[in-house]
Amino acid sequence: MAHMADLDIETLRRSAADACGLLKVLGNPDRLLLLCQLTQGEHCVGDLANATGIVQPTLSQQLTVLRHNGLVSTRREGKQVHYSIASQQAMEVMQVLYRLYCQHPEREEPST
């Protein structure tokens, strides 16, 4: 385990700022829904709209925020735009959130 004297506080500050930036972008229910879908693989806009129930223009606005912050990337195929997660950090955080909040835990039997 590292001692406090071994830690570079400026590096930690930059890392903390990066983490705060990621958490700020994730702090929106629509963006979380979109990223949750994208953890399962690449999706086109229409599929994301159907899967999440997010309507235009909100869908485009949230995908733009994710793209501008480097969390997703796009691939065009004809008129279709496909989105995928571009940030390894975002993918890892989403995997933890998925495990904690999205998987169906085994339900406990009510006591009688």
Score class of each variant (00 low, 15 high):
28 N>I: 11
46 G>V: 07
36 C>T: 10
32 L>E: 15
19 A>C: 09
21 G>C: 09
44 C>W: 01
48 L>S: 05
25 V>T: 07
61 Q>S: 14
62 Q>A: 04
55 V>F: 12
67 R>T: 12
19 A>H: 10
26 L>E: 00
54 I>L: 06
49 A>P: 00
52 T>V: 08
21 G>Q: 09
38 L>G: 03
52 T>C: 04
27 G>E: 12
29 P>H: 15
44 C>S: 07
35 L>Q: 02
39 T>C: 01
39 T>R: 03
64 T>S: 11
66 L>V: 05
46 G>R: 03
51 A>S: 08
36 C>V: 12
54 I>K: 00
65 V>C: 04
21 G>I: 06
36 C>W: 10
57 P>V: 13
60 S>T: 11
43 H>T: 05
24 K>W: 13
40 Q>C: 06
55 V>I: 15
32 L>V: 07
18 D>Y: 14
58 T>S: 05
32 L>M: 15
48 L>K: 00
18 D>C: 09
61 Q>L: 14
34 L>K: 02
62 Q>F: 11
22 L>S: 13
66 L>Y: 02
26 L>G: 04
19 A>W: 11
58 T>Q: 15
54 I>W: 00
29 P>L: 12
65 V>S: 01
49 A>D: 03
63 L>N: 02
25 V>W: 00
47 D>A: 06
15 S>Q: 15
20 C>S: 10
46 G>M: 02
57 P>M: 12
35 L>C: 03
65 V>L: 07
26 L>I: 08
23 L>Q: 15
52 T>Q: 01
33 L>H: 13
25 V>Q: 00
36 C>G: 04
43 H>A: 03
35 L>A: 04
44 C>V: 01
29 P>Y: 12
36 C>S: 08
48 L>V: 07
58 T>L: 09
53 G>Y: 11
53 G>V: 09
40 Q>A: 13
36 C>D: 10
51 A>T: 05
63 L>Y: 06
54 I>T: 01
46 G>I: 01
22 L>N: 06
32 L>K: 05
23 L>H: 12
48 L>A: 02
16 A>S: 09
27 G>V: 09
53 G>D: 04
66 L>F: 03
33 L>Y: 09
66 L>R: 00
56 Q>D: 12
57 P>H: 10
28 N>T: 10
61 Q>V: 13
23 L>I: 12
38 L>R: 02
63 L>V: 06
56 Q>K: 03
30 D>V: 12
64 T>R: 13
37 Q>P: 06
62 Q>M: 08
63 L>I: 09
35 L>G: 05
26 L>S: 02
52 T>R: 02
19 A>G: 07
57 P>N: 13
20 C>Y: 14
51 A>V: 07
19 A>S: 10
62 Q>C: 08
57 P>Y: 11
